[in-house]
């Protein structure tokens, strides 16, 4: 009920954003049902124009582009979501612990994060992925740990602000433990900002994977993903073909959709706080 009531209060832009995200998610979940062909099935000649049984034409190996797009949504979103969740788990727990315990815990965690952040993320992940091999588990762990540093910074800063409030001091004076203070007093107050960050971070990770795939170190063929689809079909541009623009458009579509929802959410939680 509460959910429906909240939904009714949304702005137009937020509704458009939600629809955009929902369409992408549905396509990802229902991929085997929607897709007319198999994910890696070669069905026709290369770079056919749209029409003729192929909604968006075919790619550089003669696979149905629409099928690849739908499966691509599935791979990219699932992996990006997993990475975001992992990054938030590590980052938020670390950040809140550091802010609440202070002292050596904060010192140790913050310096580790500083060291990791000192390296450009793309170069560091390229390095690790080249050494360890570009498998999906390695990809997930490397990117989630890299992103956890940014989440850590945010969570720590948020918690530091909340930690000095008197209701936290009151809880301490009652003898409440660190775990209670983190989960019941600090986390609920940091949550709106963290959720908004979750949406944005998901976009970044999603673009980051696309970038890695574009460089050949992301999701490996024949599995479809939007980033590598742009790279593999980039050549088609010189033949006046729209082929690479479809996956690129899909990336933009989802990113914009998520941002619209996040904007609304940020605005709303700011209002709640001002009340």
């Amino acid at each position: 009920m509460q959910f429906l009531r909240t939904l009714r209060q949304t702005t137009i832009s937020a509704r458009i954003g939600m629809a955009m995200v929902l369409i992408t998610l549905l396509a990802a979940i229902l991929a085997p049902v929607i897709a007319p062909y198999e994910e890696a099935e070669v069905v026709a000649d290369v770079w056919l124009p749209p029409g003729d049984g192929h909604l968006l034409g075919t790619d550089q190996l003669g696979r149905d582009l629409f099928t690849r797009m739908v499966y691509g949504a599935r791979n990219t979103i699932a992996i990006a979501l997993l990475i975001t969740c992992l990054a938030f788990l590590v980052g938020v727990v670390g950040g809140l612990l550091a802010a609440t315990m202070r002292g050596w815990v904060d010192m140790l965690l913050s310096r580790i994060v500083d060291v990791v952040m000192a390296f450009p993320a793309l170069i560091l992940s390229l390095m690790v992925l080249s050494i360890m091999g570009a498998s999906i588990p390695v990809l997930i762990i490397v990117i989630s740990l890299l992103d956890a540093t940014k989440v850590y910074r945010l969570a720590r800063a948020l918690a530091m602000d909340i930690e000095v409030m008197e209701f936290v001091e009151a809880a301490r004076l009652s003898g409440e433990g660190t775990w209670w203070i983190i989960t019941k007093e600090i986390l609920p107050n940091a949550l709106p900002a963290l959720i908004a960050e979750f949406g944005l971070r998901f976009c970044f990770i999603f673009l980051f994977i696309s970038a890695l795939s574009f460089l050949g170190l992301g999701i490996q063929p024949p599995a479809a993903d939007w980033g590598s689809m742009v790279r593999d079909n980039a050549g088609a541009i010189s033949f006046d073909m729209m082929t690479p623009l479809w996956p690129a458009g899909a990336i933009a579509f989802l990113t914009i959709g998520i941002n619209l929802v996040v904007d609304w959410f940020l605005h709303r939680s700011a209002q709640i706080r001002a009340r």
Binding site: M165, E166, F167, K184, P188, N189, R273
Partner: peptide
């Protein structure tokens, strides 16, 4: 300050 002495989410 009673405003900051009560957790706004409880």
């Amino acid at each position: 300050m009673p405003d900051v002495a009560l957790n706004p989410r409880q």
